[in-house]
Design a protein around this nucleic acid. Structure first.
Lengths: 126, 126
DNA sequence: ACAAGACATCGATGAATGTCGAATCAAAGG
DNA sequence: CCTTTGATTCGACATTCATCGATGTCTTGT
């Protein structure tokens, strides 16, 4: 009931205005403090080996989604897996949905695109 | 343990074989433990607001390089700036060179490309 | 109603991290 | 040689983080 996650600002807008990433490419101009704060949250979310394996497992799964039971074999305990999935969800990289007994996690494509946009840097055109 | 950094594996090959990134795209298949360990180091390096501002400042600077004195205005002390630049260098994202009084840091383009490659994910083709 | 399975939350703990001031090193100039 | 300026290293500290076992919640099947 405690909707703690509602207080977290979404890193990627999912409603109208979607497709407008949080920040320009890293090479375009120096980031402001706010932009850096926002973008760093996403990078930090993927800056852990366990989270990266979980994310990769889900992303490469059929349909871009997977149930927890299918990706829990990453060498850490079940509560730890749950903890990391929560972190990825809070960073806006995943969304979850319960279907019967199982909970399915799904990749948030816009977040993936936003991070790719930060690193896509063709400065030759300028 | 004097040469601590020498024990760190390079994240990006800079000799022959350059252009072969450390890992496939995140969406291609589940990462192995080793791949996750390698890729997570790069993401973690950019997972700090100060480091992200420093990196962005250098990347957007003319010539893709900048001296420390030009990018030290990020709200933290100068030793802290030096500390973060060292971290970025250890992650393979920057290289440094002393020219007279000043030290210049430069973006490592292959590292930027490698990270972009991880996030470049057109799963629609499958 | 009860038991079992899947997943989340809680509380604790050891390790890693970001930050600073002081000290140190390196180059340039008087 | 000594001082000044730019940058790194050192030592210390507070905070954050990853991890675990125990417990709680939700759903299904008996």
């Amino acid at each position: 009931m405690s909707n703690t996650e509602a207080s977290l600002l979404p890193l990627i807008e999912s409603g109208p205005g979607a497709g407008t990433p949080c920040c320009p490419p890293l090479t375009e101009r120096p980031f402001t403090a706010d932009e850096a704060e926002t973008a760093a949250r996403m990078f930090k979310a993927l800056g852990d080996p366990v989270r990266l394996r979980l994310f990769s497992s889900i992303a490469s799964h059929a349909g871009g989604e997977a149930c927890v039971c299918d990706i829990s074999d990453v060498g850490v305990s079940q509560p730890t897996v749950s903890h990391h999935l929560k972190k990825l969800k809070e960073a806006g990289l995943l969304s979850s949905e319960r279907r019967g007994t199982w909970v399915y996690y799904r990749i948030e494509p816009s977040a993936l695109a936003a991070m790719g946009g930060l690193l896509t840097a063709p400065p030759a055109s300028a």
